[in-house]
Write a protein that binds this DNA or RNA. Sequence first.
DNA 1: AGGTTTGTTCCCGCTATTCGAACGCGCGCC
DNA 2: GGCGCGCGTTCGAATAGCGGGAACAAACCT
Lengths: 255, 255
Amino acid sequence: MARHPDHRPVETVETAFDILDVLRHTTSAGITELADELDLAKSTVYRHTKTLESRGLVVRNGDTYRISTWFLDYGIHVRNQHPLFDVATPKVDELAAETDEKVWCVIEEGGVGVHIYGAEGRHSVRTHARIGKRTALHQFAAGKAILAHLPADRTERILDEYDLAAQTAQTITDRDELCSQLETIRERGYALNYEESVAGVHAVGAPVKDESGDAIGAISIAGPANRLSGELLTDDLPTLLLGATNEIEINLAHS
Amino acid sequence: MARHPDHRPVETVETAFDILDVLRHTTSAGITELADELDLAKSTVYRHTKTLESRGLVVRNGDTYRISTWFLDYGIHVRNQHPLFDVATPKVDELAAETDEKVWCVIEEGGVGVHIYGAEGRHSVRTHARIGKRTALHQFAAGKAILAHLPADRTERILDEYDLAAQTAQTITDRDELCSQLETIRERGYALNYEESVAGVHAVGAPVKDESGDAIGAISIAGPANRLSGELLTDDLPTLLLGATNEIEINLAHS
DNA sequence: AGGTTTGTTCCCGCTATTCGAACGCGCGCC
DNA sequence: GGCGCGCGTTCGAATAGCGGGAACAAACCT
């Protein structure tokens, strides 16, 4: 029998991170502002905030608080010790230099895609993507490439958990359509993105797989729709990209 | 009357971050390992870890946990919204291109220096510095430049709080010597670092000051001791650097 | 000056956290 | 191949630590 494991979370920890979340969104806030926002007593917020401050996790500036650069230290550390990072970085730089477009390295974590490294080409498009940005896997080329190359049951569980939210009018929101496209992606080895995440932006994405053939991340090349079209988008760039991801996989296996 | 403010921290939050700290240092750890390390009951660690996992802050891989890329999201966000970041980034890139050396942008937070952006020159030295890295202010050029341009009472409080730990044999560990050097730095406007943080590495650092003349950060140029010497180190690079920081300060005031 | 709003402190009651012990499982050692 | 150590997990109970509210002080703006 499946028990009911009574997974009650530690509420005090949750409120601490609730405070941090509000601080992250508001740039800078005071005690009362936080208490109002979170429906907590001022004294509670006060004690929490002082605790976080004494650890250096938030920084006081007069009477407002902001979250500190400790999170930068934590975050960069997490990124740098990810197995894909060291191997992918130089290849991403190369691809950006060769194509003059924006190139991203994305990893999968908990069913979402996380941008861990990006390189600028000379004609890079500027999107809202940035290092650390988390994006639903079905919404972009790298994500679809990952989704297509995960174990079938994991893919299914991810699709069950998150619904297919639309980012643009072109985002795939129909599950059957997505699944049939994933099939295509599996066959040819790479994914395409026609303005599905950002209007006016096309992209190619290819998975990076581990020894067992499961995707652990992906590399993508993105650029303006008018420039990334025709054979460049469907032949030249995919060939270049697959060459790079192939090399990455080899280096990954021997590290 | 001075009250006894009873600054009792929220202990539950502290244990949560204790767990995160251990996870950060160990790459990946299990429940028992964490409990032993922190002298806590397994069940306590279990519940905390599950809480953090349900928030996505740690990720389970089999039976071990590691901290998640959420911290990357938090951290990059903190960095990007720092007033200095947008203004300094392009100038740091320029300096790296012009000098072919490693250039860093450092900010001051809670009495320590935090590396928030670095640009590679073609002949960059590779040091242990990385984005997010925190360094005691007396140990490097950018830090000394900041220390020299903070309000006198803040400088003093910082020197009181942290003792002058040595990083290399050349690190300044004597307070009087440091203070007299800070005086020199104030007069000429920039700081020099002769292998005080990394053996074989010299550097120049200049402060970035806000409207009131207090340092909020600094820019530094670092390279091999044999290349960065003589007039290049004491004249040419400082001139170039001060030009850049001056521009940054102007842009900062108008943003 | 007065009223409002902010951060800060105190203290009490109750609940959520902690611990320790026990369970079940899988791995590896014998 | 089975025995046992070690792991993650669950449960119940006791208490200390968390959260709330009210009161204080100081800054702010009329």
